[in-house]
Amino acid sequence: MDLNKRYTPQTWPDHPETATLEGKNKFVGFWLLLAAETVTFASLFATYLALKDKGPSGMEFSAAGLFELPLVFAMTMILLTSSLTSVYAIYHMKNHNFKAMQAWLGITVLLGLAFLGLEIYEFNHYVHLGFGYTNSAFSSAFYTLVGTHGAHVVFGLSWFIALMIRNAKRGLNMYNAPKFYLAALYWHFIDVVWVFIFTVVYLMGVIG
Protein backbone atom coordinates (compact mmCIF):
# COMPACT_ATOMS: atom_id res chain seq x y z
CA MET A 1 0.00 0.00 0.00
CA ASP A 2 1.34 3.39 -0.94
CA LEU A 3 0.88 6.07 1.68
CA ASN A 4 1.90 8.81 -0.66
CA LYS A 5 -0.70 8.14 -3.26
CA ARG A 6 -2.86 11.25 -3.46
CA TYR A 7 -6.58 10.88 -3.91
CA THR A 8 -9.16 13.35 -5.11
CA PRO A 9 -12.87 12.97 -4.37
CA GLN A 10 -13.12 11.54 -7.90
CA THR A 11 -10.46 8.82 -7.52
CA TRP A 12 -11.45 8.04 -3.92
CA PRO A 13 -13.38 4.72 -3.86
CA ASP A 14 -17.00 4.51 -2.74
CA HIS A 15 -16.13 2.22 0.15
CA PRO A 16 -12.60 3.15 1.18
CA GLU A 17 -12.92 1.09 4.35
CA THR A 18 -13.06 -2.17 2.41
CA ALA A 19 -11.11 -1.22 -0.70
CA THR A 20 -7.96 -3.10 0.36
CA LEU A 21 -7.52 -6.63 1.76
CA GLU A 22 -6.25 -5.13 5.02
CA GLY A 23 -9.34 -2.93 5.19
CA LYS A 24 -11.61 -5.86 4.46
CA ASN A 25 -9.94 -7.96 7.15
CA LYS A 26 -10.28 -5.16 9.67
CA PHE A 27 -13.89 -4.66 8.72
CA VAL A 28 -14.84 -8.32 9.22
CA GLY A 29 -12.64 -8.73 12.27
CA PHE A 30 -14.11 -5.68 13.92
CA TRP A 31 -17.66 -6.87 13.43
CA LEU A 32 -16.66 -10.16 15.03
CA LEU A 33 -15.12 -8.28 17.93
CA LEU A 34 -18.40 -6.45 18.33
CA ALA A 35 -20.15 -9.82 18.46
CA ALA A 36 -17.89 -10.80 21.36
CA GLU A 37 -18.57 -7.42 22.99
CA THR A 38 -22.28 -8.04 22.60
CA VAL A 39 -21.98 -11.32 24.47
CA THR A 40 -19.95 -9.54 27.14
CA PHE A 41 -22.60 -6.92 27.67
CA ALA A 42 -25.37 -9.53 27.53
CA SER A 43 -23.62 -11.32 30.39
CA LEU A 44 -23.36 -8.09 32.35
CA PHE A 45 -27.03 -7.28 31.75
CA ALA A 46 -28.08 -10.77 32.85
CA THR A 47 -26.07 -10.42 36.04
CA TYR A 48 -27.49 -6.98 36.71
CA LEU A 49 -31.05 -8.25 36.33
CA ALA A 50 -30.31 -11.19 38.64
CA LEU A 51 -28.80 -8.98 41.33
CA LYS A 52 -30.99 -5.90 40.95
CA ASP A 53 -32.13 -4.63 44.37
CA LYS A 54 -30.30 -7.53 46.05
CA GLY A 55 -28.25 -6.67 49.09
CA PRO A 56 -27.68 -7.41 52.74
CA SER A 57 -30.89 -7.63 54.74
CA GLY A 58 -32.28 -4.17 55.39
CA MET A 59 -30.53 -2.48 52.47
CA GLU A 60 -31.98 0.99 51.92
CA PHE A 61 -31.20 1.28 48.21
CA SER A 62 -33.38 0.17 45.35
CA ALA A 63 -33.41 1.02 41.68
CA ALA A 64 -36.77 2.73 42.05
CA GLY A 65 -35.59 4.96 44.85
CA LEU A 66 -32.12 5.71 43.56
CA PHE A 67 -32.23 6.60 39.88
CA GLU A 68 -33.44 9.94 38.56
CA LEU A 69 -34.54 10.02 34.97
CA PRO A 70 -33.97 13.67 33.93
CA LEU A 71 -30.18 13.52 34.22
CA VAL A 72 -29.99 10.14 32.52
CA PHE A 73 -32.30 11.32 29.77
CA ALA A 74 -29.98 14.25 29.11
CA MET A 75 -27.03 11.83 28.93
CA THR A 76 -28.93 9.65 26.50
CA MET A 77 -29.72 12.60 24.22
CA ILE A 78 -26.12 13.74 24.25
CA LEU A 79 -24.80 10.30 23.33
CA LEU A 80 -27.42 9.79 20.61
CA THR A 81 -26.50 13.16 19.12
CA SER A 82 -22.83 12.21 19.17
CA SER A 83 -23.69 9.10 17.20
CA LEU A 84 -25.37 11.26 14.59
CA THR A 85 -22.39 13.62 14.36
CA SER A 86 -20.08 10.64 13.83
CA VAL A 87 -22.30 9.59 10.93
CA TYR A 88 -21.69 13.01 9.35
CA ALA A 89 -17.98 12.54 9.91
CA ILE A 90 -17.97 9.22 8.05
CA TYR A 91 -20.15 10.72 5.30
CA HIS A 92 -17.41 13.28 4.73
CA MET A 93 -14.74 10.60 4.98
CA LYS A 94 -16.40 8.75 2.12
CA ASN A 95 -16.48 11.96 0.12
CA HIS A 96 -12.80 12.53 0.85
CA ASN A 97 -13.53 15.76 2.68
CA PHE A 98 -10.91 15.55 5.40
CA LYS A 99 -11.50 18.91 7.06
CA ALA A 100 -15.25 18.40 7.47
CA MET A 101 -14.63 14.92 8.80
CA GLN A 102 -12.21 16.21 11.43
CA ALA A 103 -14.65 18.94 12.44
CA TRP A 104 -17.54 16.53 12.92
CA LEU A 105 -15.29 14.13 14.79
CA GLY A 106 -14.30 17.03 17.03
CA ILE A 107 -17.96 17.70 17.82
CA THR A 108 -18.47 13.98 18.49
CA VAL A 109 -15.58 13.97 20.94
CA LEU A 110 -16.93 17.03 22.75
CA LEU A 111 -20.35 15.44 23.13
CA GLY A 112 -18.69 12.23 24.36
CA LEU A 113 -16.76 14.19 26.95
CA ALA A 114 -19.96 15.89 28.10
CA PHE A 115 -21.58 12.47 28.52
CA LEU A 116 -18.62 11.23 30.47
CA GLY A 117 -18.68 14.28 32.72
CA LEU A 118 -22.35 13.70 33.55
CA GLU A 119 -21.70 10.04 34.24
CA ILE A 120 -18.90 10.87 36.66
CA TYR A 121 -21.20 13.39 38.33
CA GLU A 122 -23.91 10.73 38.61
CA PHE A 123 -21.63 8.10 40.12
CA ASN A 124 -20.21 10.65 42.52
CA HIS A 125 -23.71 11.56 43.61
CA TYR A 126 -24.58 7.93 44.37
CA VAL A 127 -21.37 7.36 46.27
CA HIS A 128 -22.18 10.37 48.43
CA LEU A 129 -25.53 8.82 49.21
CA GLY A 130 -23.64 5.78 50.52
CA PHE A 131 -24.24 3.65 47.46
CA GLY A 132 -20.60 2.68 46.90
CA TYR A 133 -19.18 -0.15 44.82
CA THR A 134 -18.94 -2.49 47.82
CA ASN A 135 -22.32 -1.56 49.28
CA SER A 136 -24.22 -4.61 48.01
CA ALA A 137 -24.52 -7.11 45.20
CA PHE A 138 -26.84 -4.58 43.53
CA SER A 139 -24.26 -1.79 43.64
CA SER A 140 -21.47 -4.07 42.38
CA ALA A 141 -23.59 -5.20 39.46
CA PHE A 142 -24.74 -1.67 38.65
CA TYR A 143 -21.31 -0.05 38.67
CA THR A 144 -19.77 -2.94 36.76
CA LEU A 145 -22.35 -2.80 33.98
CA VAL A 146 -22.55 0.98 33.61
CA GLY A 147 -18.86 1.40 34.42
CA THR A 148 -17.83 -1.05 31.72
CA HIS A 149 -19.83 1.03 29.27
CA GLY A 150 -18.12 4.13 30.61
CA ALA A 151 -14.73 2.52 30.07
CA HIS A 152 -15.75 1.84 26.47
CA VAL A 153 -16.63 5.53 26.09
CA VAL A 154 -13.20 6.48 27.39
CA PHE A 155 -11.55 4.07 24.97
CA GLY A 156 -13.66 5.30 22.04
CA LEU A 157 -12.84 8.92 22.78
CA SER A 158 -9.12 8.14 23.11
CA TRP A 159 -9.26 6.35 19.79
CA PHE A 160 -10.93 9.30 18.02
CA ILE A 161 -8.50 11.78 19.53
CA ALA A 162 -5.47 9.66 18.67
CA LEU A 163 -6.65 9.28 15.06
CA MET A 164 -7.42 12.98 14.67
CA ILE A 165 -4.05 14.10 15.99
CA ARG A 166 -2.05 11.42 14.18
CA ASN A 167 -3.60 12.18 10.80
CA ALA A 168 -4.11 15.92 11.18
CA LYS A 169 -1.22 16.73 8.88
CA ARG A 170 -1.45 14.02 6.28
CA GLY A 171 -5.11 13.70 5.51
CA LEU A 172 -7.02 10.68 4.33
CA ASN A 173 -5.47 7.69 2.64
CA MET A 174 -6.21 4.03 2.11
CA TYR A 175 -4.28 3.15 5.26
CA ASN A 176 -6.19 5.28 7.74
CA ALA A 177 -9.66 5.37 6.16
CA PRO A 178 -10.61 1.95 7.61
CA LYS A 179 -9.41 3.13 11.01
CA PHE A 180 -11.71 6.15 10.99
CA TYR A 181 -14.55 4.00 9.79
CA LEU A 182 -14.07 1.40 12.54
CA ALA A 183 -13.70 3.99 15.28
CA ALA A 184 -17.07 5.41 14.23
CA LEU A 185 -18.56 1.89 14.13
CA TYR A 186 -17.30 1.34 17.64
CA TRP A 187 -18.91 4.60 18.70
CA HIS A 188 -22.28 3.45 17.33
CA PHE A 189 -21.93 0.20 19.24
CA ILE A 190 -21.32 2.11 22.46
CA ASP A 191 -24.39 4.15 21.70
CA VAL A 192 -26.58 1.09 21.16
CA VAL A 193 -25.38 -0.42 24.42
CA TRP A 194 -26.29 2.80 26.19
CA VAL A 195 -29.81 2.67 24.78
CA PHE A 196 -30.15 -0.75 26.40
CA ILE A 197 -28.70 0.52 29.67
CA PHE A 198 -31.10 3.44 29.62
CA THR A 199 -34.03 1.09 29.06
CA VAL A 200 -33.11 -1.84 31.26
CA VAL A 201 -31.35 -0.13 34.13
CA TYR A 202 -32.96 3.28 34.38
CA LEU A 203 -36.41 3.17 32.78
CA MET A 204 -37.30 -0.29 34.03
CA GLY A 205 -35.60 0.55 37.33
CA VAL A 206 -37.67 3.64 37.98
CA ILE A 207 -40.94 2.33 36.59
CA GLY A 208 -40.98 -1.16 37.99
Binding site: T47, A50, L51, K54, G55, P56, M59, Y133, T134, N135, S136, A137, F138, S139, S140, A141, T144
Partner: peptide
Protein backbone atom coordinates in the same frame (compact mmCIF):
# COMPACT_ATOMS: atom_id res chain seq x y z
CA UNK B 1 -11.80 -5.02 45.29
CA UNK B 2 -14.61 -5.90 47.68
CA UNK B 3 -17.44 -6.41 45.18
CA UNK B 4 -20.34 -8.66 46.18
CA UNK B 5 -21.34 -10.68 43.13
CA UNK B 6 -20.94 -14.01 44.88
CA UNK B 7 -21.14 -12.98 48.52
CA UNK B 8 -24.43 -14.47 49.69
CA UNK B 9 -24.62 -12.32 52.83
CA UNK B 10 -24.42 -9.17 50.69
CA UNK B 11 -27.11 -10.28 48.27
CA UNK B 12 -24.79 -12.07 45.87
CA UNK B 13 -25.47 -15.38 44.19
Amino acid sequence: FGANFFDVTMGGN
